[in-house]
Design a protein around this nucleic acid. Structure first.
Lengths: 209, 209
DNA sequence: TGGTTTTTGTACTATACTGCATAAAATTAC
DNA sequence: GTAATTTTATGCAGTATAGTACAAAAACCA
């Protein structure tokens, strides 16, 4: 078994960094999907032999689930950070979407979209565990937007009669379409245009930037 | 080879209906995804032996591509029909979304979402052919909305300054999020709520139903 | 009835895949 | 330096998979 926080390991030291290995495994799943990614591919990308993979993460599904959790946590943290950093709701949304586009369709690499939509959505039908995790992840993402909308309502930036939960789902919908379209190969300018229209639609078209 | 429009086949008659077989194959891919669906599964669901599958549709990828095309064509036809049938833009959108929900999350079967998002999006990364077909399919879906928005503009139902292409992408975004969330297991009422908020957001919240 | 044509069903090949057993390697504890 | 402990590396077992070869079957034509 892997000793998670062992200060000085007793036996032979590990030749890999568990965190980096998980990140590489996530990238590999991201490209090939769960069913489309073999243990050989994971072994090659992480640099770990199969028995080491099993020792560190358990079987293929467990490794995928860890990658899924990691992705969700990181995405949510990054989104919260962006929305907190920008002072206005409008700027926060705009920055968040533009960051998402850079993330989904990097300038120097193949577009990959969102890990959840690109890999978990497929398996959701045949694996109830993955389906539940996907549903909860989407709900958590909704909550990030919802919390910011509530805050905007408290400061008077957003109309008192607005429905924060409903607006949050619309904000997520824009994110979902950006993720899908980037994976489908849409150009970055066209994605940026969608993001801008999304911001206008959610915040109201009144104040032009 | 399969004779597509032969009036009276010369040899032994086929034991299957190519159209029904393709529909069954589509269902099977829909559930398991491309990589996750084996030829044995396809053989079982269609009732055809593997050699018959090859004779009729070619290899696994060709069969998948045919299912993809069929799904796209049928979806677009159905959407156009709905938007044409309803007299107002608002009712057309509302009916379209509700039909989509019934389609994505049937009352008597497991929710399955959209074939494109659920199966083609995964393969898009490793198969450029599928990625291109997905991109074109999404564009065609956008066009359905765009055409309807243009028509609404012509009849004065929609503001002259509105941007039909941009509105169409937002209308698609709502459809995308419905597809994703249904596959993630969201409840039908929550999906219906999203649809209603989507309609209000796109058509403007002025006229309550 | 016999020949022709097309499809079906069985069986096969070669490969890929997941998971694990086992021994060598690298480190700590005494 | 030796024993104990943990990880690595090689290789294997059993199964699943995509695709195909080939003969039997079921129709038509003469």
């Amino acid at each position: 078994m892997v000793q998670k926080t062992g200060k000085r390991a007793r036996g032979r030291p590990r030749a890999y960094d568990p965190d980096q290995a998980l990140a590489r495994a996530m990238d590999t799943f991201w490209i090939g999907g769960y069913s489309g990614t073999s243990l050989d591919a994971l072994s090659a990308s992480t640099g770990m032999q199969r028995p080491s993979l099993y020792g560190a993460f358990g079987d293929k599904r467990s490794l995928y689930l860890e990658a899924l959790e990691r992705y969700t946590d990181e995405s949510i943290a990054s989104m919260r950070e962006t929305l907190d950093f920008e002072s206005s709701l409008r700027d926060g949304l705009a920055t968040l979407y533009h960051s998402a586009i850079s993330f989904y369709a990097p300038r120097n690499a193949d577009p990959r979209g969102c890990f959840l939509i690109g890999t978990a959505a497929v398996e959701a039908m045949s694996d109830p565990g993955i389906r539940n995790r996907l549903r909860k992840a989407l709900r958590r993402l909704d909550r990030v937007f919802e919390d910011r909308f509530r805050q905007a309502q408290a400061t008077g930036e957003l109309d008192r009669q607005a429905d924060p939960a409903a607006l949050a789902k619309m904000a997520s919908a824009v994110l979902h379409t950006l993720a899908l379209r980037s994976r489908a190969g849409d150009s970055r300018p066209s994605l940026r245009a969608i993001a801008e229209h999304g911001v206008q639609m959610i915040c109201g078209a009144r104040s032009r930037r």
